[in-house]
């Protein structure tokens, strides 16, 4: 018998810098794993999370994976909805206009609205 699978919508909220802890990597792994199960979670970068989008990252000297480059592969996993807090971008003077991922900028109240659109929120 066929059972209908109801898809829950999930927003991953990324609030930490890329290399300061393992949280950014854990969030990316969660996003990519969701895609493997055809779930395609959406992403919101807010606060220090926008530092993950800082261009020109080169983590080879540290022996880490380059998180900025890994994020660039998101469209290949059909993760197409990526949102970012406008004020946080301004705080760090980050320009995402050349980002390989299409990014939608949101202000504080829009972020609140966005969060209420999802069944579940996952904070990293």
């Amino acid at each position: 018998m066929m059972t209908a699978v109801t898809k829950k919508t999930v927003l991953i909220v990324l609030r930490h810098s890329p290399y300061g802890s393992g949280l950014a990597k854990a969030a990316l792994d969660t996003a990519l794993a969701s895609a493997a199960f055809e779930q395609s979670f959406d992403l919101l970068f807010m606060g220090d999370g926008v530092l993950q989008l800082h261009p020109g990252q080169d983590s080879r000297v540290k022996g880490f994976k380059n998180l900025g480059r890994q994020l660039a592969s998101l469209p290949l996993y059909e993760i197409n909805h990526v949102y970012v807090e406008t004020q946080a971008l301004a705080r760090y003077n980050i320009d995402v206009s050349k980002s390989p991922v299409h990014i939608q900028q949101l202000n504080g109240s829009e972020i609140r609205q966005l969060m209420t659109c999802y069944d579940h929120l996952m904070g990293f």
Binding site: R15, M46, G47, D48, G108, I111, R112, M115, T116, L121
Partner: peptide, 24 residues
């Protein structure tokens, strides 16, 4: 409606980010 669990001191960015998204 959202249940926010806040596990960071008031001077933290977590506190500030949380405040931005809380609504009545």
């Amino acid at each position: 409606m959202i249940l926010h669990t806040l596990n960071a001191a008031p001077s933290s960015s977590a506190f500030a980010d949380c405040l931005k998204t809380i609504a009545e």
